[in-house]
């Protein structure tokens, strides 16, 4: 199913009709000149109880966000407008920091429910990270068949036996999982990153390559953008679902309770650049509340987000991002 392309004048969308028009065609994340929609929810219900979001809240808010994002009337339709049953979809999690700050299991389960509702067979869904160890540390159970939940390192040859490929400043080998999937859902956790400024949807793609340690100079700029304009990413990253239930506002990417905010947030967008831009604003807002300088004032402005916008990967201009608060 594809949706027609529409232009918007930067209005804040509120009505169902307006929401319906917010959808972009499959494969588009909002090019230059187009406005992008980022759906945001902030609710005490989305705060982590223990180390996870309550399952009902995760499902309910994600459903609402997807309806708002796609303008569809039901879960199956909403997810079906982005993913078709014949496709294989990778759900790329972010699990480096362990259970306290990894992609919520409840949110991941809700994403999987959405994909199933769109008619995807279970075997066409891969929930994945760099390594199975990271997934297990974050509380996920490894499954190697059916609906797979696994690290790249489960694959023969360590999962990085493909060709060397280049995209601007980035030379790398992608995870074989990237070859297998037709589409990607990026499920980052909203967090500060000591070198990059923030690590959200775009930087989550560092987990898809074999040599991420090579690309942290200059606040990851332009490396993140160069990686994300590679056809393997740009052609597949169709949806970003950012877990902002607990936000690490400083001293990330590890979990430091002192600088972690129980924010209770969720951000969903088809445009990873716009989503990152909004996430950056949230991190800066939380920092302000903690009496910390902004990322820019700390010399850690995540300029790769603007670079990605400049490359046409999405919107990094606040005037062209429509934030819809649920």
């Amino acid at each position: 199913m594809s949706l027609s392309r529409r232009r918007f004048a930067g209005i804040l969308l509120g009505s169902g009709a307006a929401l319906a028009a917010a959808g972009l065609p499959r494969g588009s994340a909002g090019g230059e000149g187009e406005a992008s929609l980022v759906v945001q929810a902030v609710s005490p219900l989305l705060r982590r109880a223990g180390d996870d979001i309550p399952a009902t809240a995760a499902r309910e808010f994600l459903d609402r966000a997807m309806l708002a994002l796609t303008g569809k009337g039901g879960r199956g339709q909403a997810w079906g407008s982005l993913f078709s049953p014949s496709e294989t979809v990778g759900v790329k999690l972010s699990c480096l920091p362990g259970p306290r700050l990894s992609s919520s299991r409840a949110l991941t389960a809700a994403i999987v429910e959405g994909l199933l509702a769109a008619g995807l067979p279970r075997r066409n869904i891969i929930v994945w990270e760099r390594s199975s160890r990271e997934l297990e540390n974050a509380g996920y159970r490894i499954s190697r068949s059916g609906l797979r939940t696994m690290g790249t390192d489960e694959l023969p040859g360590g999962g990085y036996d493909g060709p060397v490929t280049e995209s601007g400043s980035v030379g790398t080998i992608f995870s074989r999982i990237m070859d297998e999937v037709d589409a990607l859902v990026s499920v980052p956790v909203l967090k500060d990153h000591d070198l990059a400024g923030v690590s959200i949807s775009l930087k989550n793609m560092y987990g898809a390559i074999f040599n991420p340690n090579k690309f942290h100079a200059n606040r990851c700029d332009p490396f993140v953008a160069d990686l994300c304009r590679h056809p393997q990413v740009r052609g597949k990253l169709r949806l970003s679902v950012c877990d902002a239930s607990r936000v690490q506002a400083h001293n990330g990417p590890a979990y430091f309770p002192r600088y972690a905010a129980e924010y209770g947030g969720l951000l969903v967008s088809r445009d990873p650049v716009a989503l990152d831009f909004c996430g950056w604003a949230i991190v800066d807002g939380l920092r302000r509340g903690m009496g910390l300088p902004s990322l820019a004032a700390s010399g850690r402005e995540p300029s790769y987000i603007r670079t990605a916008g400049g490359m046409g990967l999405g919107q990094a201009d606040g005037r062209r991002i429509r934030r819809l608060e649920l």
Binding site: D194, L195, N211
Partner: peptide
């Protein structure tokens, strides 16, 4: 804040918790 700076090579990587230096 549990960061380190590596003094082995001139990259002098500053590395946050759970992260690695350029050499990987």
């Amino acid at each position: 804040d549990q960061k380190v700076v590596c003094r082995l090579c001139p990259h002098q990587c500053q590395v946050a918790d759970l992260e690695r230096g350029t050499c990987g």
